[in-house]
Amino acid sequence: MTNRSLSLLTAYQRKDYWGDKMVVVYSENQKLACEMLSKARELSAELNEKVTAVLIGNGKDQLSSELIIHGADKVVMTGASLSDLKAEEVSDLLCALAKEEGAGLMMIGSSKDGKELAARVSSKLGVGCSTDSKKLYMRDGSICSERVVFSGNGVAVERFTSRPAVVTVPPKAYDPLPADVGRQGETVRKELPYGTYGSRTVKVDPMLSEGANVEDAEKIVSCGRGFKNSADIKLIEELAGALKGYTLGCSRPIAADLKWLSEDHWIGLSGHKVKPKLYVACGISGQVQHVAGMRDSGLIVAINKDANAPIFKVADYGIVGDLYQVLPKLINAIKART
């Protein structure tokens, strides 16, 4: 451990540290940052704090004004010397900022990067953290956050007893404020300290995407391991075609293990959360982790050859049968009715 990072750590772990001057908003996803700013404005009024948005790394100058017109009082640009935005260094920067400016609440975008960052930041600050916060509000003077637990079977209400409260916020939880082009705010550049660590990024590859936007889909037809091989997925595409205006979804193993479909199709606790009007699950067992991603669907239809498959417990309509026999018949039946 370097001396610098050691002294940083001890400063944060001082028990008397209790910020209350600002709400900090940070996400590499600018749209999400603007959504969080809207909530930050609302809370900052209650907390009587200012809203500061953070931009980390090089070449972000043009993003600053957008953050201000969407609600930031101040934009701090830092970490210009960082070419590789790793959680280790970025969390040092955010800790230093929280300390220097007296943050009472930190809102971090709930991407995978954001979640690992928020956890590291809160450990270094010695405070609590609520990940994937669905609701954020003040109750009796404390910041409270609600998040889904037990794979969708419950919602925990978490009350912060430490400050700054650190939360991660998923996309689309809040609507951004309309752009107020007349809004004034200051933009400052700040060099903040960060440690040196033994890790480095060797290579970054784009994630293969087939452009499935399951989150906005009205009808989703999903496939699971009940399919014997990737070529058979055309069966489900035919069904989806007959249903008109469909999007293809899948369970985790289809995307993550077998790679028959790209991960933009992956639905569930660790994938995309969807709420179409119609969700058809074919050859999906219906484990809680899958259901966590589609339980808000309007109507759920299940096709599975095992009458005891848990998917039937969460389905409105189900057919017990071999999907290789059911799907062609269903496609014809639907075509006959439309």
């Binding site: 609520s130 209400v157 912060f160 007893t161």
Partner: peptide, 11 residues
Amino acid sequence: PGIETIDIKGV
């Protein structure tokens, strides 16, 4: 602790 779970609501 830095947070307390004050309730687990049903869904």
